[in-house]
Design a binder for these strands. Structure first.
Length: 662
DNA sequence: CTGGGGACGGGGCCC
DNA sequence: GGGGCCCCGTCCCCA
């Protein structure tokens, strides 16, 4: 994929996870706080560094206050290990994953072809050299790039790396080639603007909006003088991976200059249509609103890590920074006016009070604003672009002239249904689907300004607000007790009506709330399960469950391979509400229907393939359950279908079981 | 252990 | 398309 054009990446990529906003008030440098929420820092133990040659151009990630988190990302040694490719789009640099990146897997970056050529294509003989500096003058946060590696086959032996007790790596300078320390690292800063300046003879430096950077000062190498350096790529462009002269660290300051292809007067627009963050066809997929702190600030170090996908209720660490600081991923500071906010992307922090302080969402960005600031740092969402491919796919299905939508369309009873491409739920209205998609994305755009809780729907936030106001708008007409929600009032009304819709099948105890029945059922231990297997003594609530057990799940039955997952599923179904509603005289078809209902509910969100396999499996199991031959007196091998499916099915161990388990 | 209330999530429907 | 409203369901807490 490194041969892809940059437009190919834009068209084919699935998610864009932008850098986090790095507020200047944060106490940590930008290089630490700008890391996207799905990534984490880890120290690399592979710190071989190579250098050589002479400085002409280089980019610099030296200053952690000016560079961003990419300074910590190492370059790939070979195509095989590369999982990230850098491309430039207008003034923005995007890093596309080109293969799945597993948790704890290190990001290793290289360039797209175009980007690489733009970096150095016209200066193939760029020599390079990296900064070093006088350590005594090193500011606290101006650090070497200890985690950068630039590994090639020929140079592995050249550098020895040591790590001091405080974790900061130091390189044995004797092993390095003749690097020369600059007077100051910042004097050496070079990014695209360097090249542009060079090529354009400094005619329009202000037009490019980049960070003005002085030309790097070339100095003759001084032996033994270097303890600060940047990696040393290879000088020629004969292969994409070995010979690109520049590395990317340090490109990621605000305001990268337009790349040299652009004439200076060209507006700073993407060279091709970049999906705007608010393109209606592409719902924004938000990562959870809490942001990981830099691990160095964690209460304990070492193996302690965080992930960007932590559930908000499982936040292990407080936000970094002053106590008043919001989690860094929140795009705005809290409004001093109180009230509630809708977190919208790409909006500057509002300073004024909304027209209606309470429950007023923020204004949406206008098109001009968007086009003026296409930077990914301006919006917080991971934009799901996978729907782009869905779009074209279904546009074809719907035929020419049909308004293409990024969602699969179905027709049910003459009505169009919009199907969620994640869980396959269908909705009668597209807007409902869009709200539903927040369930998958984790986006919770409506945040309570009083307690920081956030919600997927404004109505939920409005209801939540009653918690703070104490308002209880719903009154019981019988006892005049008041409730904050209609649901709770309705539950309450059962007390007056005597309605108890939830009944225990074992003891006939009835309850007004389902949760009470669930709790109650836990009381029924195995001895209360009337249907017991004579071979293994396992007991079941339902006779058909015992039949199914004997038909394929009993470990004591000879000749029957027992799949533990199937056994567990059968037990779960036996204890499910779907099984509860069946009578013991239920027909095979009724049991099968109940199994399907239970599956549909239980496997919601599972992988499609797993759902399909599980469905096949459970149907086979249902056959066993209803097999008249499956009696305690006649054990035999399970039906063939069951055996076959049981060997291939893969079911996730769900951490949370909706159905009441035992 | 039961019962009652509080809070919240998801989705349908209307405007 | 999006907001508002409503309903249903679920979970948690506590007496």
């Amino acid at each position: 994929m490194s041969r892809w054009r940059e437009v190919d990446f834009v068209l084919n990529c699935t998610y864009i996870v932008p850098d986090q906003v790095s507020d200047p008030s944060f106490r940590l440098p930008r290089a630490m706080t700008s890391i996207p929420r799905n990534l984490t820092f880890q120290h690399s133990t592979d710190n071989e560094i190579y250098s050589g040659g002479q400085l002409q151009n280089f980019v610099d990630g030296y200053d952690v206050h000016r560079s961003n988190w990419m300074r910590y990302v190492n370059p790939a040694r070979a195509l095989a290990e590369q999982n990230l490719v850098a491309c430039q789009n207008g003034r923005d640099i995007y890093f596309y994953t080109i293969r799945p990146v597993e948790p704890s897997q290190e990001l290793l970056v290289w360039y797209s072809q175009e980007f690489a050529q733009r970096l150095c294509g016209q200066q193939v003989d760029i020599k390079q050299k990296y900064t070093s500096s006088d350590e005594d003058r090193e500011p606290e946060y101006k650090q070497p790039l200890p985690q950068q590696t630039w590994l090639t086959d020929r140079t592995k032996e050249e550098v020895k790396e040591e790590r001091e007790e405080d974790g900061e790596e130091n390189i044995d300078v004797e092993m390095l080639e003749r690097d020369t320390p600059p007077v100051t690292p910042d004097d050496q800063i070079m990014d695209f603007s360097k090249k542009v300046e060079k090529e354009e003879s400094n005619r329009h430096p202000e037009d490019r909006g980049g960070v003005p950077s002085p030309k790097p000062e070339h100095r003759e190498p001084g032996p033994g003088s270097s303890r600060r350096y940047l990696p040393d790529p290879h000088p020629a462009l004969t292969s994409q991976h070995r010979n690109l002269p520049l590395h990317l660290h340090g490109l990621y300051r605000e305001g990268v200059s337009p790349y040299p292809i652009y004439p200076p007067s060209r507006p700073l627009q993407p060279s091709y249509p970049l999906l705007p963050p608010y393109a209606p066809h592409y719902p924004r997929l938000l990562l959870p609103s809490y942001s990981p702190p830099f691990p160095g600030m964690l209460p304990s170090r070492g193996s302690l890590r965080y992930g960007g996908y932590l559930a908000t209720d499982g936040l292990p660490y407080p936000p970094v920074g002053p106590p008043a600081l919001l989690p860094v991923s929140l795009p705005y500071p809290p409004s001093s006016q109180g009230g509630l906010k809708e977190l919208k992307a790409n909006v500057s922090p509002p300073r004024g009070a909304p027209a209606t302080p309470e429950l007023s969402p923020l204004p949406k960005p206008d098109a001009q604003h968007r086009s003026a600031e296409p930077s990914p740092s301006g919006f917080e969402e991971a934009v799901n672009l996978s729907l782009a491919t869905m779009k074209s796919k279904h546009a074809t299905r719907n035929g020419p002239g049909h308004k293409s939508l990024p969602y699969p369309l179905q027709k049910q009873n003459g009505k169009i249904k919009y199907e969620c491409n994640i869980c396959s739920k269908t909705f009668g209205q597209l807007s409902n689907l869009k709200v539903h998609l927040r369930v998958h994305s984790g986006e919770r755009p409506f945040q309570c300004n009083l307690c920081r809780k956030s919600f997927t729907q404004l109505a939920h936030l409005q209801k939540h607000h009653l918690v703070h106001t104490g308002e209880k708008p719903h009154e019981c007409t019988v006892c005049h007790k008041r409730f904050s929600s209609t649901s709770n009032l309705k539950t309450h009304l059962r007390l007056h009506s005597g309605e108890k819709p939830y009944q225990c099948k074992l003891c006939n105890t009835k309850f007004t709330q389902y949760i009470h029945l669930k709790l109650h059922r836990r009381l029924h231990s195995g001895r209360d399960r009337p249907h017991r297997c004579p071979l293994c003594a396992q007991a079941f609530f339902h006779r058909f469950s015992l039949r199914g057990h004997q038909g394929g799940c009993c470990p004591a039955a000879a000749g029957a391979p027992v799949d533990g997952r199937v056994k567990q599923m059968a037990e779960r179904f036996d204890a499910s509400q779907e099984a509860d509603v069946l009578t013991e005289a239920a027909t095979a078809a009724e049991v099968e229907e109940a199994v399907e209902r239970w599956l549909e509910r239980t496997l919601e969100g599972e992988e499609k393939e797993d759902q399909r396999e599980a469905t096949l499996l459970l149907k086979a199991l249902t056959v066993a359950m209803n097999s008249p031959a499956a009696t305690p007196a006649s054990h035999h091998s399970p039906p063939l279908a069951y055996q076959e499916r049981a060997s291939v099915v893969h079911l996730h161990q769900r951490p949370r079981v909706k159905t009441e388990g035992q």
